[in-house]
Simulated assay, not measured.
Amino acid sequence: MSITKLDKPRRRRRSPEEARKEAVVSARALLLSGGPDAVTLSAVAADIGVTHANLIHHFGSAAGLQSALMGSMVADLNQALDAAVARLRTDDGAPLELVNAVFDAFAEGGAGRLAAWIALSGDLSHLEPVRTAVRDLVEAICDKMGDDGQARERIGSAVLFIALSAFGEALIGPPLRNMLDQPDDAGRRVVANLLPTFLARGSR
């Protein structure tokens, strides 16, 4: 009776685009399971069955791979924020629906961890593509609430409040909720309950 051994991923011919895409997918999985330190050329190469030199050829360095990963994840965050804008424009369940949309955007695909990684790296240029999506979110809320001339500043502050809360939830929400015996949606509901008062500031 023979014993079947687990084989390493077989090397196969890939186009340059396929190789880069597979490497970025692997790097994302490593980031989510092991944090930024786990995203190395050798780990990704072993995971997808290519040589270290092959990844050097495609990305230039570990920093190049990490930059490609950030770009891919930022694109996903942009899509999630765009979906939040569309959801807000068509859904009458605000403010909880608004909060859910932004919280979901930061939770999807490890976006919260990505934002932390970018902030800690010190190179905030990777977040520049998010600028338009965030501004579109402010515009969508203005359209929904009506812009009375003073609303835009309050709404910008409200988006900051929601986004910071969503970022914290994505990073440390589950263990904090467990410590405090709170349900999974506790953070979202706190923000949603505070949001009307927050938006009303300065409107009188």
Rank of each mutant, 00 (worst) to 15 (best):
S203G: 12
R10S: 11
F161W: 09
L199V: 15
L31W: 13
A186S: 10
F59Q: 04
L81N: 04
P183Y: 10
G187I: 01
S121H: 05
L164F: 08
L96T: 04
N54W: 11
D37H: 08
D181I: 08
D148T: 13
L77N: 03
K144E: 12
P36G: 03
A80K: 03
F167A: 11
L176G: 01
F106R: 10
L124T: 11
F167G: 03
G112M: 04
A111M: 03
M179I: 13
A166M: 04
S203V: 08
V74E: 00
A116H: 08
N178P: 00
L176W: 08
I172D: 07
A163Y: 02
S2V: 15
R113K: 14
R188E: 14
K8Y: 04
L41A: 09
D143C: 04
A163L: 02
R87E: 13
S125Q: 13
F167S: 10
G202D: 08
N178K: 15
I172R: 13
P129R: 11
L98E: 05
P16K: 09
R89S: 14
S61V: 12
L88E: 09
I155N: 01
A200T: 12
G71H: 06
V24C: 02
A43E: 10
L6G: 07
L77H: 11
P129I: 05
A151V: 08
L120A: 14
F103I: 00
F103T: 00
P174Q: 09
V102P: 01
D37Y: 01
N100D: 11
E18H: 08
L69C: 03
V134R: 13
D184A: 15
G34R: 08
A107E: 06
V25R: 04
R11H: 12
E17F: 02
R177M: 06
A101I: 04
W117L: 06
R87Y: 01
F198Y: 15
A46G: 10
M1Y: 10
H58K: 05
L114A: 07
G60N: 10
I3F: 13
A68T: 02
N100I: 00
A23Q: 09
R201A: 14
L171P: 04
L31I: 10
A63G: 12
E17L: 09
H52N: 15
K144A: 14
Q150F: 12
L194N: 14
R188I: 05
I155G: 00
A27T: 02
D76R: 15
E97Q: 11
P9V: 07
P129Q: 05
R13C: 06
A170K: 09
A68G: 04
F161I: 03
L114D: 05
G187F: 11
P175R: 07
R188T: 04
I162V: 15
G71C: 03
R201Y: 06
A19Y: 02
D82G: 09
R10D: 11
D92I: 08
L160R: 11
V50W: 02
K21G: 00
K5N: 13
H126S: 09
F103M: 00
H126A: 15
A80T: 05
